[in-house]
Structures are given as structure tokens and as C-alpha cells.
Design a protein around this nucleic acid. Structure first.
Length: 871
RNA sequence: GGGAGCAUAGCUCAGUUGGUUUAGAGCAUCUCGUUUACACCGAGAGGGUCCGCGGUUCGAACCCGUGUGCUCCCA
């Protein structure tokens, strides 16, 4: 078959993915083999494939393909996350385009639209992963709102509530006064607005003096329960412990001190209104201040305000200026620019508001989770994230799990008209509980909580619930696949997700959820900025795959992405990947060409050295790569394989065994050469699955596929044979360098004299050496040869004879430069050795090494000086 | 404000318990070259005050302290 000039990935990739699927290679069912399980971090249903997914899933595919090729039962579970906030926002936006508002819909109607949206767009990202070659078991595709999964989430809520870990508590939320609803942080848009800073005078109790407080919200003073100053502020030291009167209502409130107050902002005195500001609320908590809510849910003043009851807070703000001024309590008004939050939906100014929310108390369930990471039952890669994890877990705060949304798992709590609450699996159970205190209640009297659970409250069950570990306890699959082996995720969700999965695993499976956690970096653009839609710096991944091929994209993203470090994405890495594809393609073309000229009678004597060397070098790299991969050093492993193929195999080995023009090749050499190629394709397959499978099949007839081919056990390399090859490379490079520096053209032939103690070493490689440095003859000598270029490698000297006139000055300059380097080096070694304390204290082998270096340097200097004289 | 991490060639990074030449690789750059796989190529080369300062040590990119700059998480 005639092969195309360059490798064309698109057709090949589609064909092989289809083939692997049709053979069912990605399917897994429990059997007697060792399991290797990865659960994919479920992307949002709203997602489309971006660079972060690309990195993350490439890594998982590498691990899972390697496991499969090690003969393990590899199981990679795909799925999606319902992503309550993001999805609800998308659905609301879609409805708005159709002219429908969420508030005009019932909960069920809205959920109908949401499911419709999910069915239509929710699977796009999974389809895109196929393009990347991800070897997922598609039959296992899971969703965090699947019926069984949903039930398990509710069950966990009930269970934690029963154990006393779930409670209701107050929290500041964002309140939309127009929609009369709570907003998530993501639904608040901050805008810069021109405000006024009002300086208001508060009378000091028992004195005729005032404290002046600066605020942009004078209408909230009716809720003031303290004035706070910085304890170090000299201006106010005399007021510590005193009280002031809140203007107009004349409530007496304390002056408290806290470092929170900035000395140089406003007047340095802060009015504290715990009900209407998040920071004030925290101060209030710290100093046990009263919380006075002066607003109604529509943003008008409540009765608690005492003044302006029923008027909108923004109108009141305007009126306050005149009222305060009249009372002589307004010191001055300044122009001031600040950031104010507005509702994404109604554009109303958002009010911070205290509200009852559901919480999980974390301390108890965090303990085993902290322990399993600290004791390395779960290993983090890189380990540096252990510190971060420990710090967070030791200072863990309670988790607010209710969200004011409809799309998600609805909180299983029912309220009676008197506000009492029952947590139960369904309304009937809840009614029974509530009837204990109020026998007359009926189903129509009680109402279920409107809120949903935080998305993470469902995804923390992912590693076991994808195997129905909770909905069908003790089933065969959960026993076989759990705990999973490796989790691959981004460090930014170490607390949101990783820590909580570990907690849930210990709480519900009595077992860690995974053995290893591999933290990827964040993919950034060339300038180090995060990829984002608004910056428009997010490359179109499918477009890149079209241009470069999936293998090249996988290569590009992996070649420089050490665990836990951010990746600066640069298309040139993809070019490198594409070039590598092409290199592999051309190896195939070259070898196929030889296949036609294969001859069993051709002697392989001259190729023996090359084959011995490469075989051992291959074993060496196989071992190295194995060690690297076991340590999760994927990038390093890929670099090592890349260099083996490009440098050792293509640039050295193939050149050494290459037959002359139109010459036949020995059958033995040919078969070995194809064999090495296949072994290298095997090693590379997890990283670049498509082209390796293609080459494996085109290089020689195969009855199996690389995809699920089990690796042979590696031979251990003979290090002295490997070293022999390295010496040969070094000699060739040195001779080529000398040729280059003396302006010998590639076509100019040379003669070579070698002065060495090991003639036999060179006899074995004469033919290779001649071919590689374009020498016509090799002779051995005991002394210097006149009129030659002298090259020294280790202890051997090479004399290059040429008919071309040599440029003595250039030659001399190089030699002098080398001489200077060697002398400098000798000096540093000698200095070290003449330091008595070094010789006394350093380990003997270190001293011996330094002495060896010294002797070598002296010998090299002698050689160079000799050469200089012969010029 | 609390915490974590990072700083090595123009760029991206290796550098395992301190000693394996005067610190390595890939990309980029420069020189030479189209020789019968590949210019998406080959052969070579140049390029570094290992962020600054101090300390420990016979010896520091590596250990300790300190300063500076950057990044992330939490509030």
C-alpha cells in the first residue's frame, strides 16, 4: 500500500475509535482480574469541552489505558453533574428568550423545561470526549440526578440529620427585593456606582460631645446596635467602654473596639448594623450584638425601624439627608464611588438579609478523612497539597447546603403552619412526625422546603454511588470496584469536592474512596491568564483536533504539564505533537520500503552492535518509564519515550542499520527493527492511542489490537552495552562537530586514525563510524598524526585526515577555548583537593571521584597542548 | 486579614537523602545542509550571578533565616 506523504489523522482516528467500541474494549464487568477504577470528575451538564477537560481526561485516559495494557480490569466511569446553579441560569436564560419568566411557572413546569434542556444539551461534552480518544465505559454513564442517585442523596440527608450532623442556622444571603427571592452569589452583578458618604453625628452618653460616623447607607441606622473603632486609634481611646445614642431613635449602643476597622477610612468610626451587612453581622456574632431587621421582604422599612415604615429604603435614604441635617446631626456629605450588588434577573439593588439555612456540622465527619490523607492511605500527587488539606480540615467550618434553586435535589423537610419542621423521606412521614405535636394537621397543611441542596452535596457520593454503593448496598460491583484507584482533578476543588468525597466514603462505605489523587494544573493562556469566555482566550478544542489531530493535542497538553503546576497553553506544543506524528509516519514509510528488499541470506554482522545496543536501551527506557508512571510523572514519561523514539531510534539506530542505496536488508535486522517499533508503539499508546494503533497494524500483520494488548515483562538492560552505544554517539558527535568547525562539507570524505587502548571496541563499530562521519578508512595509531584535526573523547584520541585545506586559526581558537575551560576546571578540582578539611571530612568515594576528575583533566590538557603544537 | 505554594537559559520545566566535571531537557534562536523516511527534516552551536541578602557546612540550586516579586484558596 502506498502511504501518504504526511500523516492524516482525522480519518484514522474516527476509524479506530469505532473499531475499539465495536470490540467492546472499554467495557468492564467484575472478574478475577485486579480492578483499576477511575471515576471521571463529572463535568457540568452545561459544559462544552475546554482545555481543562482536555488535560484532565487525557491524564485519566493515559492511566486507564496503561492499566488495561498491564492486564488489569480497567474501568473508567463517565457521567455528568446536574450543576444546579449553572444549569438553572441557562434554563432561565433560555426561557427568557422564549418570553417566559421563571416566576410565571410552577416548580413542576420549570423542572419540565429543565429536563428538556438537559436531554438536549447535557450529553454534548461526553460526545466530545470520544473525539479525544477517551476509553470510557459508556454503558456506565451516570448522572447526579438519576432516580437511584437522587434517592441516595436524600437518604444521606436523612441519615446525617438523624445522626445530628444536620441543623438549621442563620446566614446572610443575597435578597432580591423585586423578585422577593434569595440569590446565589453567582446571580449578583457588582457595579460601580456614584454614592454619597454621609458623616453622621452620634451623641456620646453622659457628655455633650459626638462621635462622627461615615456611611453610605444612612437609612440603616435604625438597625444600629454598636459603633466600632480600631483599638489602636488614638482619636477614640478616651471613648472605649462608653455608649452613644443612635440618632433620631436615641437607642443607647456600646462603643466596641476591633482591628477590623480601618484607621484611615471615613472617620475611623464604624456604625454596626448586624442585620444589613455581612461584615457587621460577623462583628455582631463576635460581640454578641442584637440583630434588628429594619426591612420588609419588599425592601420597605419595617416596624422595627420605627420611622418611615412602609417606605422604600432608597427613598428613605434621600429623606434622611434632610432629616438629619434638620436635627443638626449631619456633619457633611461627600461624593463617593463604591461597588454595589445588583440582581442579575431584576436589576434590583441586592439587600444582604439574614435567613434560615440548612447546615452540615463537619467536625466529626472530617476526622477520619483527615487521618486517611495524613497517614497516606490516600496519596496526593504532588504531595505538597497535603499541607493545604490538613490546614483546611483542622479548621473546617460548617457547610451551608441549601440553595435557593429549583433544579437539584429538593430538601426533604416539611413545615407546619406554626413553623415547626420535620425531616423525612416523604410528605406522609413528615406529617406523622408533625402530628406528634399537632394531631389535627393534614397533608394540605404542610409545605415542603422550596430549596435545593448544594450540588456538592450530591457529587460527594460520586465514587460509590456510580456503582450503586448506597442505593444497592453490598452489590457485586461496589465490592469489586471500590475503593477506586485514582482520582484526577484540579486543586481548586480540593475542598469543595475531594475532601468531601473522602468524608462521604468513610461515612458511608467505611472506606476511602480512592488510593491516589492526581492534581492537575490550571490551563492558562500564553500570558498566564485563566481561560475564560469573557476574555475569549479559550481555544476551540474540536477545531484544534481537526487541525492537528487528537494525538497531537494530547501530546501538546501533556508534554509540559507536571502535576499540580499550571500549564501555559501554547499552540506550538501542538505543532510539536503533529511533527511527532509525522515522524512516526515516516519511520513506517522507511521500514515498509525496506520490507520489499528483505533477504534472509544477507549477513547481519555489521548491525549486531546496533541491535544489541538498541535492545538494551529499549529495556532501560521501559524500566525508566515504568518508574516514572508509577510515580505519576506523566510528562517526564512522555518526554522519555519521545526522546527514545526520535533520538535513539530514528537519529541513531535507524541510521546505523540503514542499508545502502537500493541494497537489501537482512531479514533478522528487519524483523528486529519492526519488533522494536511495535514495543515503542506499545509504550506510547496510552499517550497517543490512534497513531500507535495505526502503525502497529501497518508495520506488520497483526491478529490483535494494541489497545488491549498486554505488555510483555521487560528484560533488564545490560548497562555496559548501553554505555558502549553512548560512547559511540559521543565519538560521532565530537567528530561531526570537528568537521563542522573546520568547514568540511557533508560530502567531503575523511580518513580517521584512532589512538586507543581498546582497539577491539572500535573494530566492532568501524562500519557504523565510517558511515556516520563519512570516513573512507579507519586505522589505529600509537602516536599523534601530523596535519590532522585532533579530537579527544574520554581517553581516546581521533585524528581526522582531510584533503581540504584546514583553517589553522579557527582550529587554534577552538583548541584554546577548550584549553581554557579544562584549565579552569582543573583549578577548581585542585583547589577542592588541596583543602585538607575536604579530604578529611568528605566521604572516601567522593574524594576518589575528585581525584579521578583531576587526573582526567590533566590528561585532556596534555592532549590539547600536544594538538596545539602540531598545528 | 488568615493560609498554602512558586521564583533555575528568551519561553515551559527537570534537578530524588547536600558531593557524578564549571547546572540539564524540550521549544525558540544562530550556523551549515535538500545524502535514496521525514524541511511537519538532518548535522552542529550559542545561551544561566540557580530572585536579593545573611547563616549552617570541608562543600549549597538543594538545608535554615530574612527580604522582594508572583499565583492560588479561604474570609
Amino acid at each position: 500500500m502506498e502511504l501518504s506523504k504526511n500523516y492524516v489523522p482525522n480519518e484514522t482516528e474516527a476509524r479506530w475509535y469505532q473499531h475499539w467500541l465495536s470490540k467492546g474494549y472499554f467495557k468492564s464487568t467484575p472478574d478475577s482480574r485486579e480492578a483499576y477504577t477511575i471515576v471521571m470528575p463529572p463535568p457540568n451538564v452545561t459544559g462544552v469541552l475546554h482545555m481543562g477537560h482536555c488535560l484532565n481526561n487525557t491524564i485519566q485516559d493515559i492511566l486507564i489505558r496503561r492499566a488495561r495494557m498491564q492486564g488489569k480490569n480497567a474501568c473508567w466511569v463517565p457521567g455528568t453533574d446536574h450543576a444546579s446553579i449553572a444549569t438553572e441560569a441557562k434554563v432561565v436564560a433560555m426561557l427568557r428568550e422564549r418570553g417566559i419568566t421563571k416566576s410565571s411557572l410552577s416548580r413542576d413546569e420549570f423542572l419540565g423545561y429543565a429536563w428538556e434542556w438537559k436531554e438536549k444539551y447535557g450529553g454534548i461534552i461526553l460526545q466530545q470526549l470520544k473525539k479525544m480518544g477517551c476509553s470510557l465505559d459508556w454503558d456506565r454513564t451516570a448522572f447526579t440526578m438519576d432516580p437511584d442517585y437522587y434517592k441516595s442523596v436524600i437518604q444521606v440527608f436523612l441519615d446525617l440529620h438523624k445522626k445530628g450532623h444536620i441543623y438549621r442556622g442563620k446566614r446572610m444571603i443575597n435578597w432580591d427585593v423585586k423578585a422577593k427571592t434569595a440569590l446565589s452569589d453567582e446571580e449578583v452583578i457588582y457595579k460601580e456606582v456614584q454614592s454619597k458618604l454621609y458623616h453622621i453625628k452620634y451623641a456620646i452618653e453622659g457628655s455633650n460631645d459626638f462621635v462622627t460616623v461615615a456611611t453610605v447607607r444612612p437609612e440603616t441606622i435604625f438597625g444600629d446596635t454598636a459603633v466600632c473603632v480600631n483599638p489602636l486609634d488614638e482619636r477614640y481611646k478616651h471613648l472605649h467602654g462608653k455608649f452613644v445614642f443612635v440618632p433620631l431613635i436615641n437607642r443607647s449602643v456600646p462603643i466596641i473596639t476591633d482591628e477590623y476597622v480601618t484607621l484611615d477610612f471615613g472617620t475611623g468610626a464604624l456604625k454596626v448594623t448586624p442585620a444589613h451587612d455581612i461584615n457587621d453581622y460577623q462583628l455582631g456574632q463576635k460581640y454578641n450584638l442584637e440583630v434588628i431587621d429594619t426591612l420588609n421582604d419588599d425592601g420597605t422599612m419595617s416596624e422595627a425601624a420605627q420611622f418611615f415604615i412602609g417606605e422604600d429604603r432608597l427613598d428613605v435614604r434621600k429623606k434622611m439627608e434632610a432629616v438629619l441635617s434638620e436635627a443638626g446631626l449631619l456633619d457633611k456629605v461627600e461624593a463617593y464611588t463604591n461597588q454595589v450588588g445588583f440582581s442579575e434577573r431584576t436589576d434590583a439593588m441586592v439587600e444582604p438579609r439574614l435567613s434560615l439555612q440548612w447546615w452540615v456540622s463537619m467536625k466529626d465527619i472530617a476526622t477520619p478523612a483527615l487521618q486517611s490523607v495524613m497517614e497516606e492511605a490516600i496519596q496526593f500527587h504532588p504531595a505538597k497539597f497535603k499541607n493545604l488539606y490538613r490546614h483546611w480540615m483542622e479548621n473546617i467550618k460548617d457547610w451551608c447546603i441549601s440553595r435557593q434553586l429549583w433544579w437539584g435535589h429538593r430538601i426533604p423537610a416539611w413545615y407546619a403552619p406554626d413553623g415547626s419542621v420535620a425531616v423525612a423521606a416523604n410528605a406522609n412521614d413528615a406529617l406523622a412526625i408533625l402530628q406528634e405535636n399537632n394531631a389535627g394537621l393534614t397533608l394540605s397543611d404542610i409545605k415542603q422546603d422550596e430549596d435545593c441542596l448544594d450540588t456538592w452535596f450530591s457529587s460527594w457520593l460520586w465514587p460509590f454511588e456510580v456503582f450503586k454503593g448506597l442505593s444497592n448496598p453490598g452489590n457485586e460491583e461496589i465490592k469489586y470496584y471500590y475503593p477506586t484507584q485514582t482520582l484526577v482533578t484540579a486543586p481548586e476543588i480540593i475542598f469543595f469536592w475531594v475532601a468531601r468525597m473522602i468524608m462521604a466514603g468513610h461515612e458511608y462505605m467505611d472506606q476511602k474512596p480512592f488510593e491516589h489523587v492526581y492534581f492537575t494544573g490550571i490551563v492558562r493562556d500564553k500570558q498566564g491568564r485563566k481561560m475564560s469566555k469573557s476574555l475569549g482566550n479559550s481555544p476551540d478544542l474540536l477545531g484544534l483536533i481537526d487541525v492537528y489531530g487528537a494525538d497531537a493535542v494530547r501530546f501538546g497538553i501533556m508534554i509540559a504539564s507536571p502535576a499540580g503546576n499550571d500549564i501555559l497553553f501554547d499552540e506550538s506544543a501542538l505543532e510539536q505533537g503533529r511533527n511527532f506524528n509525522n515522524k512516526l509516519w515516516n519511520v513506517l514509510k522507511l521500514i515498509q520500503g525496506w520490507g520489499n528488499r528483505m533477504d534472509a541470506h544477507v549477513d547481519a554482522k555489521n548491525e549486531k552492535f546496533a541491535m544489541d545496543w538498541f535492545e538494551n536501551r529499549l529495556s532501560q527506557v521501559q524500566q525508566e518509564v515504568d518508574v516514572l508512571l508509577n510515580g505519576f510523572k506523566l510528562s517526564e514519561a512522555l518526554k522519555t519515550i519521545y526522546s527514545l523514539i526520535w533520538d535513539d531510534y530514528c537519529s541513531w539506530y535507524l541510521e546505523w542499520i540503514k542499508p545502502g542505496f537500493e541494497q537489501p536488508i537482512s531479514k533478522e535486522v528487519y524483523e528486529k527493527t519492526v519488533g522494536y517499533l511495535n514495543e515503542m508503539m506499545h509504550m506510547l499508546h496510552p499517550f497517543m492511542p490512534f497513531i500507535t494503533e495505526e502503525i502497529y497494524h501497518l508495520a506488520s500483520a497483526q491478529s490483535d489490537d494494541l489497545c488491549n494488548k498486554i505488555a510483555p515483562t521487560f528484560a533488564s538492560p545490560n548497562n555496559s552495552i548501553v554505555a558502549g552505544g553512548e560512547l559511540l554517539k559521543q565519538v560521532i558527535s565530537a567528530l561531526r562537530d570537528a568537521r563542522n568547525k573546520n568547514q568540511l562539507k557533508p560530502k567531503d570524505t575523511i580518513t580517521l586514525h584512532i589512538q586507543t587502548a581498546n582497539t577491539d571496541t572500535y573494530k566492532a563499530i568501524e562500519s557504523i563510524l565510517c558511515k556516520q562521519v563519512n570516513a573512507t578508512s579507519i586505522e589505529y595509531t600509537n602516536s599523534s598524526v601530523d596535519n590532522t584535526i585532533v579530537v579527544a573523547v574520554e581517553k581516546d584520541k581521533f585524528f581526522i585526515g582531510t584533503s581540504i585545506e584546514l583553517d589553522a586559526t579557527a582550529l587554534k581558537a577552538t583548541l584554546l577555548a577548550d584549553l581554557a575551560y579544562q584549565k579552569g576546571f582543573l583549578e577548581s578540582v585542585t583547589k577542592k583537593l588541596s583543602n585538607e578539611r575536604f579530604v578529611q571530612n568528605a566521604k572516601p568515594e567522593v574524594v576518589a571521584l575528585e581525584q579521578q576528575k583531576q587526573a582526567d583533566a590533566i590528561a585532556r590538557i596534555a592532549t590539547i597542548e600536544e594538538s596545539l603544537q602540531s598545528l
